[in-house]
Amino acid sequence: MDLSNLMHNYPEAVSMILFAIGFSNLLLQKNLIKKIIGLNIMDTAMYLFLALKGYIVGRSAPIVTDGVQSVEAYINPIPAGLVLTGIVVSVSVSALMLSLTIRLYRRFHTLNLDEISTMLKKEGL
């Protein structure tokens, strides 16, 4: 297997490792707060990946400075726009998850989702 590409693209590899860490935390952690942290790591890894893909070495952010209008001077602005949209989505989703966590904590006095499920089964609601 050729690993030279991996060395060349190591920032992308890092972002994918971060994605995997976030994904598995969101899936496997029992504590709801840790799950939400996992969610944020996962989303941030994705933004890192997108930003990397839009970056072109030696160019600057696409804001016209000193009257330079040539395409060659700037990086690809679309991934940056996607990252901004993604951040908005991620913020609202995290806020919703946190508010759900508060609700659950007030009612069951625990952050462990499995314990909550067993409590509900005992209640027989």
Binding site: M46, G86, V93, L96, M97, L104, F108, L113, S117, L125
Partner: peptide, 24 residues
Amino acid sequence: NGRTIEAATRYMIMSLLGSGMLLL
């Protein structure tokens, strides 16, 4: 009631895993 909040939390977690993969 307790059930629906728990169900909503589980739903959100599963959905977020799904949308993470979709976005990737």
